[in-house]
Simulated assay, not measured.
Amino acid sequence: MSHDESAAKLVRMANQIATFFKSQPEAEQLPGIALHINRFWEPRMRRRFFEMVDDGGQGLDPLVIEAARHIRRPALMTAQTAT
């Protein structure tokens, strides 16, 4: 899977989560999105997610971008930790 394909998949997944939580009470939307991503997305996925958010969040639902401040940002990988 190419880098662009994996990014598109993460955008689609994040937007599906947002779509679900839009049906919930407003006070539960942002925490719900963040909780789901924190629980079920591994650090590598969240790392890529934040790369996209930091790059402008193109394609991401505005609710996902707003929820990003509640999502745990994984530590950056260094060459030493990648081995």
Results as ranks from 00 to 15, higher is better:
M1C: 10
M1A: 08
S2I: 12
S2L: 12
S2V: 09
E5S: 15
S6M: 10
S6D: 01
S6C: 06
A7N: 14
A8V: 10
K9V: 08
L10D: 05
L10W: 05
V11N: 10
V11F: 12
R12G: 13
R12N: 12
R12H: 11
R12S: 11
R12D: 14
R12E: 11
M13G: 02
M13V: 05
A14W: 06
N15V: 09
Q16M: 06
Q16R: 06
I17T: 01
A18S: 07
T19M: 10
F20V: 12
F21I: 05
F21K: 00
F21M: 02
K22C: 12
K22P: 05
S23Q: 13
A27K: 12
A27V: 13
E28F: 09
Q29Y: 00
Q29E: 06
P31V: 00
I33D: 02
L35D: 14
H36I: 03
I37A: 04
I37T: 02
N38Q: 05
N38I: 04
F40Q: 09
W41C: 02
W41P: 06
E42D: 09
M45Y: 08
R46E: 01
R47N: 10
R47H: 09
R48G: 04
F50M: 04
F50P: 05
F50V: 02
E51G: 10
E51D: 10
E51R: 05
M52T: 12
V53M: 08
D54S: 08
D54P: 07
D55L: 07
D55E: 15
D55A: 15
D55S: 15
D55T: 11
G56W: 04
G56Q: 08
G57T: 02
Q58C: 07
Q58A: 15
Q58S: 15
G59D: 14
G59A: 14
G59T: 15
L63H: 04
V64M: 04
V64Y: 02
I65W: 00
A67I: 10
A67W: 10
A67S: 15
A67Q: 07
A67F: 12
A68F: 13
R69W: 11
H70D: 12
I71T: 01
I71Q: 01
I71N: 00
R72H: 08
R72V: 13
R73E: 05
P74E: 00
P74R: 00
A75Q: 00
A75C: 00
L76D: 03
L76H: 11
L76K: 08
M77Q: 14
M77L: 11
T78Y: 09
T78M: 12
A79D: 15
Q80W: 09
Q80G: 13
T81C: 06
T81V: 14
A82M: 10
A82D: 14
T83R: 14
T83Q: 13
